[in-house]
Design a protein around this nucleic acid. Structure first.
Lengths: 219, 219
DNA sequence: GGTGAACCGTACTGTACAGTTCGGTTTATT
DNA sequence: AATAAACCGAACTGTACAGTACGGTTCACC
């Protein structure tokens, strides 16, 4: 069903073809995303999407079998973009600095307009489509979190902190970093935080974290 | 428009009448709530509600002018019920114990099935109806939170903790108490926590909180 | 310059919904 | 028993939607 062998688009036969219809697919996702993000899943209609797209509804259905399919593709793509925000970190000797950097990264990612709206839509659809929630959580947990777990584990082994349960310690740090920003943001009760607010939040989180795990014997 | 003077229902003229139609109104809210909670706002229909209620749709509209009205009444009532879960607390000398008790109360309330579902519905509707989000947040913040702020303020004044910014300290404690339970719960990725898990979470939160604010100079 | 796939526009099918209307019926107050 | 309010059931209005059908059109490739 998918283009067997076929020289295409002038550009010779690279392994990664320039994609005749992948481009269109990408554009559909872009447009549909903006519609879903404006009016929510239930509020959006395929007619609205196709009209804003410019083409016909039939074309839309040639790329996606259903509204649900399209929505899923959008969330999937968005999760990928959020995951890309998390860089790989190797711990340095300055643990506090490393945690602060990772914390800023995490908080910035999760508080971005796109991530917040994605989260809201996932919550809205979490009954009909629980896999989306799992996927999103994996992005935050694994991409943004297992980094953290590994780092804390290493720091524990090095004796920089006393955190035998690195999973739990990572959870604590994440909770401190999020603060109540995220909670409020999800309800549209707060705008994207300023750089200053963000820094304050992360620094406080690291301070508190280190006060507990830094030196004394813990749990 | 509302029953001028009228002896009613056998029961004599108390100030708080036994309510001929308030009972029915209450029952409508009950039924509608269960429907909204099962299928969400968009997924629910007034026909479904009235049929499950037993009466006719016209009766339903005699009590509530619109679907939106009905939904709002439900959320409002639910917020009231959640607020009722928070008791008044006067600080004792044992600060840790007091914090643990309040923490358990807060976590139990916010992690209950009803509170979680209410939160999800509010998120779903937060674009169309931002006041609901505000109301919900007020319940958590003011009922469950200003207690905490006052208590921490008093503890600071008494020298039990060093937290000049009691607002911020309360935020920190709340974040620690919530942990990642709430985050996961909202996405339907976790069930109601067990008593043991709940206790562990709160005790850890209080430990970390006191490690930072308990003795040394902070912020 | 001809073949076929992708596309367009538009109209259609069938369904579902919010909210209304209305004639008949119960129920409670006098 | 008489009066009026509340209620029932069921049909109805108008709208909006997901998804399909189809004849005509572009456009890439041979």
């Amino acid at each position: 069903m998918e283009m067997p062998t076929k020289t295409l688009k002038g550009a010779a036969t690279f392994k990664e073809a320039p994609t005749f219809k992948d481009q269109r697919r990408e554009r559909i996702i872009q447009v549909a995303r903006s519609v879903f993000y404006e009016v929510g899943y239930a509020g959006a209609s395929m007619s609205m999407i196709s009209s804003r797209l410019g083409g016909s509804k039939a074309t839309l259905y040639a790329y996606f079998n259903s509204k649900e399919d399209l929505f899923e593709a959008i969330i999937r793509e968005q999760c990928g973009q959020i995951a890309d925000l998390f860089l790989a970190h190797t711990g340095t000797d300055d643990l506090r600095a490393t945690l602060a950097v990772m914390g800023r990264e995490l908080l910035t990612a999760i508080m971005s307009d796109e991530a917040v709206r994605t989260f809201q839509l996932i919550v809205e659809e979490s009954h009909r489509n629980p896999q989306l929630a799992e996927m999103f959580h994996n992005v935050i947990q694994s991409q943004g979190g297992s980094n953290l777990v590994n780092l804390l584990q290493a720091a524990h082994a090095r004796g920089q902190i006393n955190a035998p349960n690195s999973q739990e310690a990572a959870m604590v740090l994440k909770s401190l970093i999020f603060g109540d920003c995220h909670f409020k943001r999800i309800m549209n009760l707060a705008a994207q935080p300023t750089e200053a607010h963000l820094s304050r939040q992360v620094d406080l989180a690291v301070d508190i974290f280190m006060a507990y795990y830094g030196s004394k014997s813990a749990g």
